[in-house]
Simulated assay, not measured.
Amino acid sequence: MTERYEAIVIGGGAAGLSAALVLGRARRSTLVVDAGEPRNAPAAHMQGYLTRDGTPPGEFLAEGRREIERYGVELVRGRAVDVVRDGAGEFDVTLADGRTVHARRLVVATGLADELPSVPGVAERFGRDVLHCPYCHGWEVRDQAFGVVATTPMSVHQALMVSQWSKDVTLFLHTVAEAELTDDDLRRLAAAGVSVMPGEVAGLVIDDDRLTGVRLTDGTVHDREVVFVAPRAVPRTRLLERLGAELRETPFGAYPVVDETGQTTVPGVWAAGNAMGFAEQVITAAGAGYRAGATINGDLLFTDLDATGRA
């Protein structure tokens, strides 16, 4: 028989676990489906989370799983491969192992994947001395020699932002033509003291397991200690699309249209964390999960009260 829950949370990161914690504490039967693919897995530590600054992401998630277990929330390690909305407005979720589980309400917290530039050395060093978010890692690498590998004109914005943490910043244009830089770009880069280096990046120079430079295709090597890149965000919205959720286009991909609580255009379905936007950090993702969980509990409560009153 199909296992039935009041809520199923798809995704076991900060957003999903936070939603599940609220629902468990509200005495709602809840299942978390966790594929084990957190976006911040390459990072040794997470920063900017009040009282948890510097905590390893794996340790943070393990503690979250222990907390939801205390309130009777079930967790299954696996992947949700399909979801359909039935005639009653509830949901059947198919797992990769063939099981089907049923939910009255659904939280999609599947996050996104970072697709890195295909520069030799970038993937191997990502999360160490190849970074993407100065708010996540800027303090730890402050005052070192930064390089920014441009893959889009938006990389100018990244170079300007990281100049807050170092006054030695070089923007390597890589796949961006000089002609693509606007007068405002050039003025701001000059004001920030950011050097602009034309030419395509051939790879990173690693010495004794430490990044020491950026090599261009012309053979020149430029000494750098840290490199920032802009991954292409790949939102994991397949299940939301399967349900017919409306998406909105952004410079970082297509994300679901949601209200202030995270509810999508599909009744009974909420999105939280990076499943609803590119810029969600761990602390804001957890907050979004909390809002979704609390809203779902209230929605279920009043739905049942109204049904009882009509009986």
Results as ranks from 00 to 15, higher is better:
Arg238Tyr: 07
Trp270Glu: 02
Leu243Tyr: 02
Arg238Lys: 14
Ala230Asp: 12
Arg242Thr: 00
Arg236Lys: 14
Ala272Ile: 06
Arg232Asn: 13
Ala254Pro: 12
Val229Lys: 09
Thr265Asp: 02
Ala254Arg: 15
Ala254Thr: 12
Arg236Leu: 08
Pro251Ile: 06
Ala254Asp: 10
Trp270Lys: 10
Pro251Tyr: 08
Pro235Gly: 06
Thr264Ala: 05
Val234Leu: 14
Gly253Leu: 07
Glu225Leu: 11
Val229Glu: 04
Glu246Leu: 13
Arg232Thr: 15
Ala254Cys: 10
Val269Arg: 01
Val257Ile: 11
Glu260Arg: 15
Glu241Asp: 08
Leu239His: 01
Val266Phe: 03
Ala271His: 01
Val227Phe: 11
Pro267Phe: 04
Gly253Ser: 11
Gly268Arg: 00
Arg238Asp: 13
Val229Ala: 06
Thr265Ala: 05
Val229Tyr: 04
Ala233His: 14
Tyr255Ile: 10
Thr264Ser: 10
Thr261Arg: 12
Val266Trp: 00
Gly262His: 03
Ala245Phe: 04
Val258Ile: 15
Leu247Arg: 02
Thr250Tyr: 04
Ala245Asp: 04
Arg236Gln: 10
Ala272Val: 07
Ala254Leu: 09
Ala233Lys: 15
Thr237Tyr: 03
Glu260Phe: 10
Glu260Ile: 09
Gly253Phe: 09
Val227Leu: 13
Trp270His: 12
Arg242Asp: 01
Val234Phe: 06
Gly268Gln: 00
Leu239Asp: 00
Thr265Phe: 03
Tyr255Gly: 04
Thr250Asp: 03
Leu243Arg: 01
Leu243Ser: 02
Arg224Asn: 11
Gln263Val: 09
Val257Glu: 10
Ala233Thr: 13
Pro235Asp: 05
Leu239Val: 00
Leu239Gln: 02
Thr264His: 02
Pro231Gln: 10
Ala230His: 08
Val227Met: 13
Pro256Cys: 08
Pro256Asp: 06
Gly253Thr: 11
Leu243Trp: 03
Ala271Arg: 00
Ala245Gly: 07
Val258Asp: 05
Leu247Ser: 01
Phe252Met: 14
Val226Leu: 14
Arg224Pro: 13
Gln263Met: 15
Gly244Ile: 03
Phe228Arg: 06
Val257Leu: 15
Arg238Asn: 05
Gly262Tyr: 07
Gly253Ala: 07
Arg242Tyr: 00
Val257Lys: 14
Leu247Phe: 03
Arg248Leu: 11
Phe228Ser: 06
Phe252Leu: 11
Leu247Met: 07
Trp270Leu: 07
Pro231Ser: 09
Thr261Gln: 12
Arg232Gly: 15
Glu241Arg: 13
Leu247Trp: 02
Gly262Ile: 02
Arg248Tyr: 08
Arg224Lys: 15
Arg242Ile: 00
Ala233Val: 14
Ala254Val: 08
Pro267His: 03
Leu247Gly: 01
Glu241Ser: 12
Trp270Gly: 03
Ala254Met: 07
Glu246Cys: 08
Phe252Ile: 07
Val266Ile: 08
Arg248Ala: 15
Glu260Leu: 11
Thr250Ile: 08
Thr237Trp: 03
Gly244Thr: 06
Val227Cys: 13
Pro251Thr: 06
Val234Thr: 14
Pro267Val: 05
Glu225His: 12
Pro256Leu: 04
Thr264Ile: 06
Thr261Glu: 10
Pro256Met: 03
Ala233Met: 15
